[in-house]
């Protein structure tokens, strides 16, 4: 009996652990996307100012809690680099989530989600296939 309880507890904690991991990743994805969108807004604003050729050549950039004055071009480059890094991180997280979810499903005794490991069809191929899946469009 005691052994049974131990086993159960161990199993439950294992499930919880994986589930918690997934939730953390999801939260992180949201955080990253928030950052990504803020960066995008900043880039857009910088672009506009550069185009308008406004007088101050430098712009205030906020890092964490500190404002630093940077030349606009440098600031732009910094943010663009950051953006590329974020993009990579998001992709990695998303790909990792897939394994974690299939692991969780396995632990919970659910059937495997099939097909998600496939390579996606290209746009043209999907267009052709869509013709009979969503007719009249």
């Amino acid at each position: 009996m005691n052994q049974g309880t131990d086993k159960l507890l161990q199993y439950l904690s294992e499930v919880e652990e994986v589930a918690e991991d997934i939730l953390t990743d999801k939260n992180q994805l949201v955080d990253l996307d928030r950052k990504r969108n803020k960066n995008r807004e900043a880039l857009r604003a910088l672009d506009k100012e550069i185009k308008a050729d406004q007088m101050p050549k430098k712009s205030l950039v906020c890092f964490g809690n500190m404002f630093i004055k940077f030349p606009k071009e440098t600031a732009k480059k910094l943010i663009t680099d950051d953006q590329a890094k974020l993009e990579k991180e998001v992709t990695n997280l998303r790909n990792g989530l897939k394994h974690k979810i299939s692991k969780l499903r396995e632990l919970e005794g659910k059937s495997e989600l099939s097909g998600f490991s496939l390579q996606p069809l290209s746009r043209e191929e999907m267009c052709a296939v869509e013709q009979f899946m969503k007719p009249c469009r």
Partner: peptide, 22 residues
């Protein structure tokens, strides 16, 4: 909920006959 920019994956199963027909 969640992030604004999402990746959406959908798995379809179609039959060979359906592809033939189209």
């Amino acid at each position: 909920e969640g992030e604004l920019q999402k990746r959406k994956e959908v798995v379809h199963t179609v039959t060979l006959h359906e592809i033939d027909v189209i």
